[in-house]
């Protein structure tokens, strides 16, 4: 096929590809809403939600993942454009993650030695860890599908940004249902679950976001 022939084919194809941004945001929100509905009907929102939201430490269960997830989502959107260099959103998220880790270290130091593991473990560690990953599965799959229509300069990084966004938003959502309020608990398990989802996004992105 001569290049001129290819051009005439391209001109004849008048299907306009949809923009990535609105579709990605709506796909993720829709998938999260679906899972939220399921959780509400199965488990129900924690009964003492108002009290939990009033407590500045417990409030971090929502604020920290949001501070990770929203900039990561902005980064994933930016990275769907081929000429993007660097990503302030991911830099910001990295700072938030570093602050959270510092908090965890300080919290461990401030806790009597014998109490550290029991507090980290809480009474639903595995459940929380897996729940966040489960909540993430559908939005991550939907997000990857939409991002595949983009043109990422770095597919693996794009996937990681999406994973971080989805994992963090899933953790924010899960916080409405999780009654474990010790920072040792949520910093550890929310953090680990978000890290795993980020990694899953990176691995999937490497293959699925190539173009």
């Amino acid at each position: 096929m001569k290049t001129d022939d290819l051009i005439s084919l391209l001109v004849r194809d008048d299907t306009i590809p949809p923009a990535v941004t609105p579709r990605l945001v709506s796909a993720i929100l829709l998938a999260l809403a679906l899972v939220a509905g399921l959780l509400v009907s199965l488990v129900g929102v924690r009964a003492d939600l108002a009290r939990a939201l009033a407590d500045p430490v417990t409030r971090m269960k929502w604020l920290l993942p949001l501070a990770l997830g929203l900039p990561a989502l902005v980064a994933a959107l930016r990275l769907s454009r081929p000429q993007t260099r660097g990503s302030p959103g991911l830099l910001f998220a990295a700072l938030v993650a570093a602050a959270a880790m510092l908090w965890l270290v300080l919290a461990i130091k401030a806790t009597p030695a014998g109490m550290v593991w029991p507090r980290i473990k809480g009474n639903s560690a595995m459940m929380c860890f897996f729940a966040i990953m489960l909540v993430s599965a559908l939005p991550l799959a939907a997000g990857l599908r939409v991002l595949g229509g983009g043109a990422s300069p770095a597919p693996m990084l794009s996937g990681a940004a999406l994973g971080l966004a989805v994992g963090s938003l899933a953790a924010t959502l899960y916080a409405f249902f999780c009654t474990q309020d010790s920072p040792l608990f949520f910093l550890t398990w929310y953090g680990l679950a978000i890290a795993v989802v980020t990694l899953a996004g990176a691995v999937a992105g490497r293959g699925m976001l190539r173009w």
Partner: peptide
């Protein structure tokens, strides 16, 4: 490159110049 420019043209931001976008592709 032409094929990608065609299929990915929604990733161009109309507020920005087209050339850097096309060169990136």
């Amino acid at each position: 490159t032409l094929l990608a420019i065609h299929l990915k043209r929604a990733t161009w931001d109309e507020a920005l110049p087209l050339r850097p976008w096309a060169y990136a592709i």
